[in-house]
């Protein structure tokens, strides 16, 4: 099988690392070779963050390059747009419509572009944009945005719901399991 590429992008502190951990776990459970590459440290302080998840029969490079991502799962709209160059031809974007202003926008040095979902579609991406924040709050916490997004992304993969739930059980701390199960369900079903 040709290596498949998933990028998880967002703003430092949004919980992208847990999402990639869960995805990696699921793919390993399914018997694939998996590599997950993360960036820790300075960029986690509210900067733009990206995690690469690659799976297949045998994965060499730990990173995804421009034009290679089959899926971009984005926690924030501007971040989805930022990484568009990485999307493969015919690639799918699954993005939260939440807007988090970066510091240059806050200080007035730059503007947050309007109509980003439409621009991405016009550039040839398949785009699914939805309000994951409201669903996360409905599940019980704004912090569950990551799992809501994975729930929505799960619809694009052939893995049965149980395999996702198993990976969820194995990666989320027991204290937050109920909340995250609900967040996953809302993302997958709504």
């Amino acid at each position: 099988m040709k290596t498949k590429n998933i990028m998880i992008v967002g703003v430092g502190g949004q919980g992208t690392l847990l999402a990639s951990k869960l995805l990696g776990r699921l793919l390993m459970n399914e018997g694939y070779d998996v590599k997950v590459s993360e960036i820790h440290g300075m960029s986690q302080r509210g900067g733009s963050v990206v995690t690469y998840v690659r799976y297949g029969d045998s994965v060499a490079s730990p990173v995804i390059d421009e034009g290679e991502a089959d899926y971009i799962i984005s926690f924030e709209l501007l971040e989805a747009a930022r990484w568009m160059k990485y999307l493969a031809s015919g690639g799918q974007v699954i993005t939260n419509t939440q807007r988090i202003d970066p510091m240059p926008v806050i200080t007035g040095a730059a503007e947050y572009p309007e109509g980003l979902a439409e621009s991405m579609a016009a550039a040839g991406a398949k785009v699914e944009a939805f309000d994951a924040l409201t669903l996360a709050e409905k599940a019980g916490s704004s912090k569950a945005v990551n799992i809501v997004l994975l729930g929505r992304a799960s619809r694009f993969f052939d893995f049965p719901a149980e395999t996702w739930e198993k990976a969820l059980d194995e990666t989320v701390p027991p204290k937050f399991l109920e909340l995250n199960r609900e967040a996953f369900r809302l993302g997958r079903e709504s």
Binding site: G47, S48, G67, K85, M120, A123
Partner: peptide, 20 residues
Amino acid sequence: SKDTGRSLDAKIPGRPPVMC
């Protein structure tokens, strides 16, 4: 040569790390 991806017309502001 490899596919170098989609590009957007929109100008994307940077998102440097900040003090929390």
